[in-house]
Amino acid sequence: MRIAVTGSSGKLGRATIERLTADGHSVLGLDLNPAPHGGLFTRVDFTDYGQTLDTLLGVTARHSGLDAVVHLAAIPVNGLVPDATTFHNNMTVSFNVLFAAHRAGIRRIVSASSITAMGFPFEEPPPALPVDESYTAANNTYGLTKVLEETLAGQLVRWDPELSITALRFTNIVAPEDYGTFARAGEPTYRRDLLGSYIDARDGGLAVALALANGKPGLEVYNIAAPESGNSIPSAELAERWFPGTPVADDLGEFESLMSTRKAQQQLGFRAEHAWRDEYRPEG
Rank of each mutant, 00 (worst) to 15 (best):
M1R: 15
M1C: 12
M1W: 08
R2N: 07
I3C: 06
A4N: 02
V5T: 00
S9L: 06
G10V: 06
G13H: 05
G13E: 02
A15L: 04
L20H: 04
A22E: 02
D23F: 11
G24R: 06
L28P: 02
L28D: 00
L28M: 09
L30N: 00
D31G: 02
L32W: 05
P36C: 12
G39L: 03
V44H: 00
D45M: 02
D45N: 04
T47W: 03
T52R: 00
T52S: 01
L53T: 02
T55V: 10
L57C: 14
D67G: 15
V69W: 01
V70P: 02
V70S: 00
H71Y: 03
I75T: 01
V77F: 12
N78T: 09
N78W: 10
N78K: 13
G79V: 09
P82D: 08
D83I: 06
T85K: 14
F87T: 06
N89M: 10
N89Q: 14
N89S: 11
N90E: 01
M91I: 13
F95P: 07
N96F: 00
A100K: 00
A101D: 04
R103W: 05
G105I: 11
R107T: 10
V110Y: 06
S111E: 07
A112G: 11
S114P: 15
P121D: 12
P130N: 08
P130H: 04
P130M: 10
D132M: 11
E133G: 13
T136Q: 13
A137P: 12
A137R: 14
L144T: 15
V147A: 14
E150C: 15
E150H: 14
E150T: 08
E150K: 10
A153M: 08
Q155Y: 13
Q155S: 10
L156A: 02
V157P: 03
R158H: 10
D160S: 09
E162P: 07
E162F: 11
I165H: 12
A167Q: 08
T171Y: 13
T171M: 12
N172Y: 13
V174F: 09
G180E: 09
G180I: 04
A183Q: 13
A183L: 10
A183Y: 08
T189S: 14
L194S: 13
Y198R: 05
I199P: 03
I199Q: 04
A201F: 03
N214A: 13
N214K: 15
K216C: 05
K216M: 05
P217I: 07
L219Q: 09
L219M: 05
E220L: 10
V221K: 06
Y222K: 01
N223A: 03
I224F: 03
A225M: 01
P227E: 04
S229F: 08
S232C: 14
I233F: 06
P234L: 12
S235E: 06
A236I: 06
E237V: 15
R241C: 09
F243A: 05
T246H: 15
T246Q: 15
D251Q: 11
L252D: 07
F255G: 09
S257W: 08
L258S: 05
M259L: 15
S260I: 11
R262E: 05
R262D: 02
Q265N: 06
Q265M: 12
Q265K: 14
Q265C: 10
Q267P: 05
F270H: 02
A272W: 00
E273F: 10
A275I: 05
E279Q: 14
Y280E: 03
P282D: 02
E283N: 13
